[in-house]
């Protein structure tokens, strides 16, 4: 019954997240509410890591497979993609490099400066 209990706890947080998403006016997905609440509960000690660990690790391990239907759905919007293939390629390549360089450089600069002080 251990894994049953673990899965139950995670579903409970998903349900609370869903309710919050319905009740609050922010454009925040139910999953993010659940994630933040679970993290706070872990920090506060309300939920202990062993109470959810195995079920959470299992879900994280199978997570990529859960995206297959969403990726396959791309076949239904083939035309939209082909029409915009050049801007899409340029945007994806450039932003990926920009995000990496900005994040990495800022983090490195702040960590090193912190050490020198």
């Amino acid at each position: 019954m251990k894994s049953f209990f673990q899965f139950m706890v995670i579903l409970l947080f998903s349900l609370i997240g869903e309710f919050l998403h319905e009740l609050l006016p922010f454009p925040i997905p139910a999953s993010v509410y659940g994630l933040v609440l679970l993290f706070i509960s872990l920090l506060a000690g309300v939920i202990k890591l062993p109470q959810i660990e195995e079920a959470a690790d299992f879900l994280l391990k199978i997570m990529p497979a859960l995206f297959i239907p969403s990726v396959v759905k791309l076949m239904t919007i083939r035309d939209l993609l082909w029409e915009n293939i050049v801007p899409i390629l340029v945007i994806v390549l450039t932003t990926t490099v920009v995000v990496m360089v900005v994040t990495g450089q800022v983090a490195q600069w702040m960590i090193r400066r912190h050490k020198e002080l």
């Binding site: 139910a30 994630l35 872990l42 890591l49 879900l59 994280l60 759905k73």
Partner: peptide, 26 residues
């Protein structure tokens, strides 16, 4: 035809995302 049964997989996405709290807490 594919999607009407495959979409059941998507149901697990919310609990999986909630689970990201675990590596974060570690």
């Amino acid at each position: 035809t594919y999607h009407q049964s495959a979409e059941k997989l998507t149901w697990l996405l919310t609990p999986a995302t909630v689970s990201l709290a675990v590596p974060m807490y570690r």
